[in-house]
Amino acid sequence: MSNTLRGEVLRSFKAIHKVRKDVFKGDIRALAEGRKKINEEYKKHKHVDNDESIQELVNYAKAVEHELRHCVIQAREVSPGVYQAEIREDIPKLDNVTFNEDCCNNVENSSVKGSTKCR
């Protein structure tokens, strides 16, 4: 393995651990399980020596890091049945569409289901 590729592997290892700390901040169990899983995966592939395979694994690690950073949120139970979501700044936020109850009632009452267009 070239030094450049070795550096990429180490950077991906550090980056995925860093995102683990950010995503699961304050959750001791998730932090420990995440550390364990990441270390297992890197150790499992420690003996791969084909440069193309190593590059594929590095790309996979980057995809996992992106998924954790941009798609995983933490929710904590603050009281029975009530949860508070911890949404970080790097989580993409989408525009919400206002629910229109009248639209649903019109569809239920129409003789041909789906014939009423509502937005």
Rank of each mutant, 00 (worst) to 15 (best):
K44H: 03
K44W: 02
H47N: 15
H47G: 04
V48R: 12
D49S: 13
N50H: 06
D51H: 09
S53I: 02
I54L: 11
E56S: 11
V58D: 01
V58W: 02
V58Q: 01
V58P: 00
N59D: 13
Y60R: 14
Y60K: 13
K62E: 12
K62N: 14
A63C: 08
E65R: 14
E65W: 03
H66N: 13
H66I: 10
E67K: 07
E67T: 11
L68W: 06
R69I: 07
C71V: 01
C71D: 10
V72F: 09
I73P: 03
R76H: 06
R76Y: 05
E77C: 09
E77F: 10
E77S: 14
E77L: 11
V78I: 15
P80A: 15
G81S: 06
V82A: 10
Q84G: 00
Q84I: 11
E86C: 05
I87W: 05
I87H: 08
R88A: 08
R88G: 02
E89I: 01
D90S: 01
D90H: 01
I91W: 03
P92E: 14
P92K: 12
K93C: 04
K93N: 04
L94S: 09
L94R: 12
D95I: 05
N96V: 07
V97T: 14
T98P: 00
F99C: 07
F99H: 13
N100P: 00
E101Y: 07
D102Y: 03
D102W: 03
D102N: 05
C104Q: 11
N105D: 14
N105F: 13
N106M: 15
N106C: 05
N106Q: 15
V107Y: 07
V107P: 00
E108I: 10
N109G: 07
S110H: 12
V112E: 08
K113L: 06
G114P: 02
T116F: 00
